[in-house]
Simulated scan of single mutants.
Amino acid sequence: MDNKKYLYGASGHCKVIIDILQSNNEAVEAVFDDNPATDFTLGVPIISVKADIDFSEKKMLISIGNNNIRKRIAEGLGTAFYSAVHPKAIVSQYATIEVGSVIMAGAILNVESHIGKHCIINTGAVVEHDCLLADFVHLSPNVSLAGNVSVGEGSHVGIGATVIQGIKIGKWTVIGAGAVIIEDVPDYAVVVGNPGKIIKFKKNE
């Protein structure tokens, strides 16, 4: 196994992850991308995935914000994954973070919160005690989850949204920016407003 660290996806999200790793004195060897627009990002070389690459021997983190794409790539790479936690995040010693997830600056993970695989806990997001996030969840900047909230696979909670205690959010939902969630949210729902209301359902992913 190659112990060097690699990223997949040369997006703006990628630059944030490079900064997190460098803040932890960890180097990024290279970034892989399907269609690179440039040769470097923050001084890190970008390599087209059209090249003959054996990903099975590389430690990867998928630096793509879209939950659907991140899941597809994660399931297709067949490689080992690692996680990244910004040194200015506050993470309880009793919180758990699974592989492939990213915890950004100012985020708070309180006691016995659980972050699944390939999640994004964005800048300043708060995950209170006993919350459970399934795989491929994205909490946008300044989201606040009160205690005992669960969020299903692939759901995206928009910037500044607030979820009161004990709420269950289904899989592959979208919670709009600034929404206030005071009732459980079913699978595939799109919810906006204060209080949050379902405006439509997505097609099954």
Rank of each mutant, 00 (worst) to 15 (best):
I46Y: 10
G160D: 02
G196N: 08
V190S: 06
S144K: 13
A95Q: 07
I159H: 08
G158D: 09
A179W: 04
V85N: 12
I199L: 12
K4R: 15
I64V: 04
D130V: 00
A74K: 02
I164V: 15
V174F: 05
G106E: 02
V143R: 07
G193D: 07
I46E: 04
Y8L: 08
G193M: 08
N204L: 14
E128L: 10
T162K: 15
G160F: 02
P45T: 11
G160N: 01
A37C: 10
S83E: 09
V174T: 13
G178F: 06
P45W: 12
S140R: 06
S83G: 11
I159M: 11
D39P: 06
K71N: 12
C119D: 00
D2N: 15
I108V: 15
I115H: 00
C119M: 00
I167P: 04
K200M: 11
V16Y: 01
V143G: 08
L21G: 03
C14R: 01
V28C: 09
V180I: 14
G178L: 11
P186F: 04
I90S: 13
H138T: 15
N142V: 11
G124F: 07
D34T: 11
D2G: 07
D33R: 08
E112T: 13
P87C: 05
Y188E: 05
I164M: 04
V102N: 03
K5Y: 13
I181R: 02
C131N: 09
L7I: 00
V85S: 10
V157G: 06
I115T: 03
I53W: 01
S56P: 05
I167K: 06
I115W: 02
M60G: 06
G166A: 08
N142K: 12
H118I: 00
P45G: 12
E75W: 00
N110V: 07
K203Q: 13
I18A: 02
S23H: 04
A80N: 14
L133E: 03
N35W: 10
G78D: 02
G116S: 01
Y8E: 00
V126T: 10
H114S: 14
G170W: 01
K200W: 12
F55V: 08
I73E: 07
I69H: 01
T123N: 02
Q22T: 14
S11F: 02
K4T: 10
E183A: 10
M1A: 15
